[in-house]
Amino acid sequence: MDLEWMAWTLPTAVFFLGIAALLLGMTFWQHLSPTRLRRGLLPIPTTRGDRLFVGLLASAFLHLAWLALTPFSLWIALGLSVLLLVSVLRLG
């Protein structure tokens, strides 16, 4: 089967593997200690999965805003996103 048309590159492959690993990890974590619905800084009660989704979506927008508003390297945005994701997961 020829998959050249999918035009894979190393960075995108790493990205998708990262997402997959994240989902697997979350499933495993859920298995170890099940999440409970709780109310944090976000205006709605959330589970761990909800917070992961919100965090990832927010990270995506952070990257876009970074590209649109600053001339600096995206690596800084990536670093900030990781911080954002962790804080949403913990506090959201």
Partner: peptide, 20 residues
């Protein structure tokens, strides 16, 4: 969707000809 993500980070000239 994955293919579109792949497209979005490359300049594609034709089949097999692409630059990151």
């Amino acid at each position: 969707l994955m293919t579109v993500v792949n497209y979005s980070v490359q300049d594609i000239f034709g089949p097999g000809q692409r630059v990151f």
